[in-house]
Design a binder for these strands. Structure first.
Length: 236
DNA sequence: GCCAACGTTGGC
DNA sequence: GCCAACGTTGGC
């Protein structure tokens, strides 16, 4: 998903509180069906404790994540007459180095975004480009609120099936934290993934490979820390 | 630009 | 609720 950010942060307070009810309250049937099937009956008590610590299970047994990877396209591509380019430098250039991660139109990705909490970290991943890979780290500065672009006919991610009274799509605000000390290419991560899959290791189940098309993905703390540790090493 | 993988849609 | 057709993602 190539979200196209606009301005910095939260001047969308209207939709925020209005939308919030819709989003947490009445999830329409269709919303949740596309979630990881099988599990998730609807947690009686949503996440309360474990928020900031390691990724673990909540009361209902659902895994709680606190590290993320979000994909965006750093190279120009025209979609519906609009350039969807948005790389890490574009985020950094916004006021307060903050932007809204709009344009996510996949239920699983959306549901992960809904789980995001303020202060959590996410890798900024460059997709659909010369050399795909992790470019930096950002943090969540505003939790899920209505993605207004779904109602905008001019927007490349306009969704005519979504109605203002019951919005389908949400976004979060993210703030640039830093670029990684070096660019960490997908090709390198893949080598580790294959190695770890064969012999064991932190990246053996990394979503980047096991669910490669997901534009918003969770990482376990082990995955996150391992990837971070690569910053200081040479490429393999 | 190709195309594999996979998500979505809609007929039945 | 199945599944074929279709659309999209994103690496290569």
């Amino acid at each position: 998903m190539p979200p196209k950010k606009r301005t910095g942060g939260s001047r969308n307070e209207l939709s925020t509180s209005a939308g919030q009810d819709n989003l947490s309250g009445n999830e329409s049937a269709e919303d949740f069906d596309n979630d990881v099937k099988g599990k998730r009956k609807k947690p009686a008590t949503e996440t309360s404790a474990k928020q900031k610590g390691t990724s673990e299970k909540d009361a209902s047994g659902k895994t709680v994540y606190c590290h993320w990877l979000m994909k965006s396209e750093p190279e120009s591509r025209i979609q519906n007459g609009v350039d969807v380019k948005f790389g890490i430098e574009d985020l950094k250039a916004l006021p307060n180095q903050t932007g809204c991660w709009d344009g996510v139109r996949n239920y699983q990705a959306r549901n992960f975004m809904r789980d995001m909490k303020v202060e959590q970290q996410a890798f900024f991943y460059h997709s659909n480009c010369k050399e795909p890979g992790i470019a930096g780290i950002m943090k969540i500065v505003k939790e899920a609120y209505v993605d207004h672009t779904q109602f905008d006919k001019k927007d490349p991610h306009y969704d005519p099936s979504s109605k203002p009274g019951n919005p389908k799509w949400i976004m979060v605000d993210v703030q640039f934290e830093r670029k990684t000390k070096r660019y960490i290419p997908l090709s390198e991560l893949k080598k580790y993934h294959l190695r770890h899959k064969a012999k064991g290791g932190p990246l053996k189940n990394m979503a980047l490979f096991t669910r490669s098309r997901l534009s918003v993905q969770p990482l376990t703390e082990e995955e996150f820390n391992f990837v971070l540790s690569l910053e200081g090493k040479g490429r393999i």
